[in-house]
């Protein structure tokens, strides 16, 4: 079945809008606390999100990645069926992995200050190194399969010639 990208994006947007509306309507004080640090000119802020807020955060993340994927899939509309299917599967898998990594952070409760990875606590290291660099896999696909997925120099030249012939 052909995936209707615009419908997929629209449903994602409706979902995300409803999630945000729910957040705005419910009372925020129960799950989020922010105070000014008592020292250092009051410039540093202290704050924390209560653990029972994790599932809300994950739902927001889910909607957010859905919208990102829906937008990204629009770039595949010009491809022939088989190529389109392949790259859409890759993009979807990437977004699911990214969502899992975000979920891992959201649901990991303890911040262990005893074990450090490359200078940072474990969950911060996951954020910096895994979440930060995992999108390089998509960049690699863009570079490696540019001629197959994006455009060839020859088709660009023929497009230029087409435009010139229209202008005459």
């Amino acid at each position: 079945m052909k995936l209707k990208v615009d419908a997929f994006l629209l449903v994602g947007l409706i979902f995300l809008t409803l999630v945000v509306l729910y957040f705005l309507i419910t009372t925020p004080e129960v799950s989020y606390y922010q105070t000014l640090h008592s020292e250092f000119n009051g410039l540093m802020i202290s704050g924390r999100t209560a653990n029972d807020h994790s599932s809300y955060s994950f739902i927001f993340c889910f909607g957010m990645i859905w919208v990102y994927l829906g937008s990204l899939l629009l770039s595949t509309r010009h491809l022939i069926k088989q190529k389109r299917k392949n790259i859409q599967i890759v993009m979807t898998c990437f977004c699911l992995v990214y969502l899992c990594l975000l979920g891992l952070l959201i649901f990991s409760k303890d911040l262990n200050l005893q074990s450090f990875y490359f200078g940072f606590p474990r969950s911060t290291a996951v954020m910096l190194y895994l979440i930060g660099f995992s999108p390089l896999s998509l960049s690699y696909i863009y570079i490696r399969y540019f001629e197959t997925l994006i455009i060839t120099e020859a088709s660009f030249k023929s497009f230029q010639n087409f435009i010139k012939s229209q202008d005459k």
Partner: peptide, 23 residues
């Protein structure tokens, strides 16, 4: 050491969400 100093003062600050919170 920087992470330890910041974490001992306020663990949230060196955590992945900082002090602004998850949302």
């Amino acid at each position: 050491e920087i992470s330890q100093i910041i974490g001992q003062d306020d663990a949230g600050a060196i955590g992945p969400w900082g002090t602004l919170g998850t949302m």
